[in-house]
C-alpha cells in the first residue's frame, strides 16, 4: 500500500517524472510466460518489433531472452514468430 497523503501528491494525479513506467513492474500481471528455443530462433527480431512492452532483450543484434519484470505475457511474440521458436508456458507450473 502506498503511504503518500493526498496533499503531497501532484494535483490530479499528474505524473511529473519522465520515463516512470520503468518503475511499474507489469510482469506481475503475467499468467503465461514466453520461452524461446534458441536452436530454432533465427534472430529475425520480429518478436522485438511486435512486443508492446519492449520486453524482448536484444544484444549485438541477437535475441537473447525476455525481460520478465515488464512482460505481461500477452503472447504476441509467440504468435508472430515465423519459425515457432517461442512457446507460452503456464506460470507456476513446472
Amino acid at each position: 500500500m502506498a503511504n503518500e497523503g493526498s496533499s503531497s501528491l501532484p494535483a490530479g494525479g499528474m505524473i511529473i517524472e519522465a520515463g516512470s513506467s520503468k518503475k511499474y513492474k507489469t510482469g506481475e500481471w503475467r499468467a503465461q510466460r514466453p520461452e524461446v528455443d534458441k536452436a530454432k530462433c533465427t534472430d529475425c527480431l520480429t518478436c522485438w518489433i511486435y512486443c508492446p512492452d519492449n520486453s524482448v532483450m536484444v544484444k549485438d543484434e541477437k535475441m537473447v531472452g525476455f525481460k520478465y519484470s515488464h512482460c505481461k505475457g500477452c503472447g504476441i511474440c509467440a504468435n508472430q514468430c515465423p519459425v515457432k521458436a517461442i512457446t507460452m508456458k503456464e506460470e507456476g507450473v513446472e
Binding site: 500500500m1 503518500e4 501528491l9 494525479g13 499528474m14 511529473i16
Partner: peptide
Amino acid sequence: VRPLLDVKQPTTYGPLAMPDYYYELKYQ
C-alpha cells in the same frame, strides 16, 4: 500548471490510479 506544451517539464495528465491512490486523489 505544468502545461503539456512545456516540453522542458514532461508531464502525464490523467493516468490510471489504482485502489492505493484513487481515494487520495479524490480527496484533493
